[in-house]
């Protein structure tokens, strides 16, 4: 490793194995068991889109009366079935059980194959896979999967007019930024996910509102997720990450939120390693710029009269520039 580079924060491009958690809410019904192997698309849970509390009017058998258990009215008792929905037992008070239930349901499908490591009704399901993944900053939306398509270079922004039905079922890499209109269009034409370097607060708010409306709609919406690699302020996708994404074009990938990760559904995929002396500026006036590490610059004075530990970086063959160590990242 070049001298002093160890003081720059390392960003791993690929992590693995992947262990993803899918949160469940009271009322959701797990459909898998501990240790079960699942394939991509297999149902993990039956989720309630409009959860609510109800009071069970009928009697519950003592053996089934356990918080977290799924309860359904006994067969043959039509009156009770009409009066009370089925759902997850929450708690008992005043001699009657409360359940979490709802009218509209949707399936939570496994976005990648794996082994179920934990099932906790009302809390979550944990799925393990030997696959590798690219860690990001955050994921908005629901777990999804599809083939990866690179729609734009790493430093460009995609407009709504550039997204068409050819992207249906795909996860699109859209470069540095995407606006709310393009996200809406992507969703409308059946795109399953977006990979973007940065997503601003405004777009974030629009996506969350759209997701909420979709949940409230009678038929719901297919799973869709936005995988944000870096943060909220516009910048290009890091070139070592982009190299991996370009290498994966055409292959199946998945997006999961916890941890925020793009799962590469091929443990044997050979992916290009990053160059050890490449560093990238993550914040400040040079945000997104990449260069080669020269060495430590020591304490240096920057704008605003601030003295900070800095490193010397050569950008595009120009003379080295001092950049605060906190503004740099390297790739491993």
């Amino acid at each position: 490793m070049p001298t002093g580079l160890e003081l720059v924060r390392a960003r791993p491009i690929l992590v693995g194995p992947v262990e993803a958690t899918f949160p469940l809410r009271p009322g959701d019904r797990p459909l898998v068991a501990l240790g079960e192997a699942v394939v991509r698309g297999a149902p993990l849970a039956d989720r309630v889109r409009d959860p609510r509390t109800e009071v069970v009017t009928g009697r519950i058998e003592p053996g089934a009366a356990e918080p977290g258990a799924y309860w359904a009215p006994p067969p043959g008792r039509r009156r009770a079935a009409v009066e009370t929905a089925r759902g997850e037992l929450l708690f008992r008070s005043g001699g009657r059980w409360r359940i979490g239930t709802g009218e509209h349901h949707e399936l939570l499908e496994a976005p990648f194959p794996g082994i179920v490591r934990e099932v906790r009704p009302g809390i979550g399901i944990r799925l393990h896979s030997p696959a590798k993944g690219i860690l990001g900053r955050e994921v908005l939306g629901r777990p999804t999967s599809g083939r990866l398509e690179v729609l734009a270079p790493r430093d460009r922004e995609v407009r709504a007019s550039e997204i068409d039905v050819g992207g249906a079922g795909a996860i699109l890499v859209v470069g540095a930024h995407i606006d709310a209109e393009a996200i809406t269009r992507a969703r409308a034409v059946g795109v399953r996910g977006i990979v973007v370097a940065a997503l601003g607060v405004k777009e974030r708010r629009d996506v969350l509102a759209s997701e909420k409306r979709g949940q409230a709609a009678v038929h719901g919406l297919p799973p869709f997720a936005i995988f944000v690699l870096d943060g909220a302020v516009r910048r290009p996708i890091a070139s070592p990450v982009m190299a991996v994404l370009e290498h994966l074009a055409g292959r199946a990938v998945a997006i999961v939120a916890n941890p925020p990760c793009l799962v590469i559904d091929d443990p044997d995929a050979e992916l290009p390693p990053p160059e050890p002396d490449i560093v990238r500026v993550v914040a400040g006036p040079l945000v997104g710029a990449e260069g080669r590490w020269v060495g430590l610059a020591g304490p240096s004075r920057f704008a605003g009269g601030v003295v900070l530990e800095a490193g010397l970086v050569r950008f595009a063959g120009r003379p080295p520039v001092a950049v605060p160590l906190g503004d740099l990242e390297r790739f491993v």
């Binding site: 943060g231 993550v282 914040a283 400040g284 605003g304 601030v306 900070l308 906190g326 503004d327």
Partner: peptide
Amino acid sequence: RELRAIPWSDPAGDG
């Protein structure tokens, strides 16, 4: 959001 996510960054100038 950036300051929360990467709190060590952008310590000079406007930051």
